Simulated scan of single mutants.
Amino acid sequence: MFTNNAMKNLMNGVFQKDFCLPDELQIILNEGFKKLDRGIIVFNRTFSEQFSSCEDVNSNIDKFLETFIDKSGFENFINKIHIDDYVFESVDIVNSAFIFLEKFNILWGQSFPEINCISLISFDTDNEFGLGCVFRFHVIREGSEIYDIEKIEDFIEPMAIKVYQAV
């Protein structure tokens, strides 16, 4: 896992390995993934909240890809979970985010062991409503880079990136 210094400062003294993931976040993982045309992979939950059917997306895939530049950009947009929508205490948001990130990578390895993936959590510490946290993921594709791990310190917000390498 790659973290920037802002994340290390946020984690300092907060992260608890024995913390349990809230039920609603576990349900998102349990619902699994949906594989669309052209190798696009999305969470079942986030997909069903935004689209009525695979046919709608698959028949309009070119329009979506124009809007989001490429498949990874589309996945990064669709596969966005606001951890703070399910957890309300700052310490619980941090712990839930890391547990979700770890459990996601285990599920990904079981579901798509042959596909490389990048998953990340980022935090908004200046949120007027308290600590905000977003989880995202996308398939790693040749020629498509959304997050450059080598430049993780360039991100102001606390960020942790995990790369799943195909077996």
Rank of each mutant, 00 (worst) to 15 (best):
S111M: 11
V14F: 11
I61Q: 03
V91N: 13
E24N: 09
I118M: 11
N127M: 01
F51L: 01
F47S: 06
I61F: 12
S72D: 04
G143V: 01
V57R: 06
N60C: 10
A97L: 08
Y86I: 03
I152G: 06
N9S: 12
L107W: 00
I78M: 00
C117G: 08
R45L: 00
I28W: 01
F137P: 05
K35A: 03
C54D: 05
I28P: 05
E114M: 08
N30H: 12
F19A: 06
E142Q: 06
S48D: 07
P158N: 09
G73W: 01
K162N: 10
Q165H: 13
F51S: 03
R38T: 04
K162R: 12
D70V: 00
E150W: 12
D37G: 10
K103G: 02
F74D: 03
G132D: 15
S53L: 11
N5K: 15
F77R: 15
V14D: 02
E102P: 10
V42N: 05
E66A: 02
G39H: 10
S52Q: 15
L120T: 05
E114F: 07
F123T: 02
L131N: 11
T46C: 03
E145G: 06
H82A: 02
D62Y: 10
M159E: 13
F155R: 14
E49H: 09
N79V: 05
F155K: 15
N105H: 14
N60D: 13
L10G: 06
C20M: 13
M11I: 01
S96E: 03
C117D: 05
A166P: 15
S59I: 06
M159W: 12
N12Q: 14
Q110G: 09
S52I: 13
D126T: 04
V134L: 05
E89N: 13
L131D: 09
Q110T: 13
L107S: 12
W108Q: 12
C54A: 08
D18I: 10
I161P: 11
L36R: 15
G13H: 12
E142I: 01
K63S: 06
E75I: 00
F74A: 04
F155M: 10
F100T: 13
C133K: 04
